[in-house]
C-alpha cells in the first residue's frame, strides 16, 4: 500500500511537477529588487526576458545586471522571467 502511494505521488510529480518551484537563480532577484527599488515581481514575462537579454548582450547599459546576466543562458533567463512574472 505504502509503495503504491509513493508511486502515485511520484507520477503526479512528473505530471504537475514542482511547477511553482523557482528555476535556478530566480530567488536571488529579491536580494535587490523589492517593492521600493526597481520592482520586478508580477511584470510581464516577455518584458522581463527581453530586459534581461538586453542587459546580457550589453545593448542596455547597466551597473551590475550585465555582469550577472552573462551567467545565464537564454533558456534560463526565459524560465526566470516566467517565474518572476508569477510572483506578487
Amino acid at each position: 500500500m505504502m509503495k503504491l502511494l509513493v508511486l502515485a505521488v511520484v507520477v503526479s510529480m512528473g505530471a504537475v511537477g514542482f511547477a511553482a518551484e523557482p528555476p535556478p537563480g530566480a530567488t536571488t532577484c529579491s536580494g535587490c529588487h523589492g517593492p521600493s527599488f526597481m520592482p520586478v515581481n508580477g511584470r510581464a514575462s516577455a518584458d522581463l526576458s527581453s530586459g534581461m537579454e538586453a542587459f546580457r548582450s550589453g545593448e542596455r547599459p547597466s551597473t551590475v545586471m550585465g555582469r550577472l546576466m552573462k551567467g545565464f543562458s537564454p533558456a534560463e533567463i526565459q524560465a526566470i522571467a516566467v517565474w518572476i512574472a508569477e510572483q506578487k
Binding site: E21, P24, G25, T28, G31, C32, T63, V64, R67, L68, K70, G71, F72, E76
Partner: peptide
Amino acid sequence: PVEPRLVNTCYSLVAPDYGISVAGVY
C-alpha cells in the same frame, strides 16, 4: 535537490557618493 545557480553582489563605498561593486554567478 536540484542544482542551484547562485549569485552574489557586493557594494562598497569609497566615499558617501562613490560606490563600487563586485558580482559573481556560481
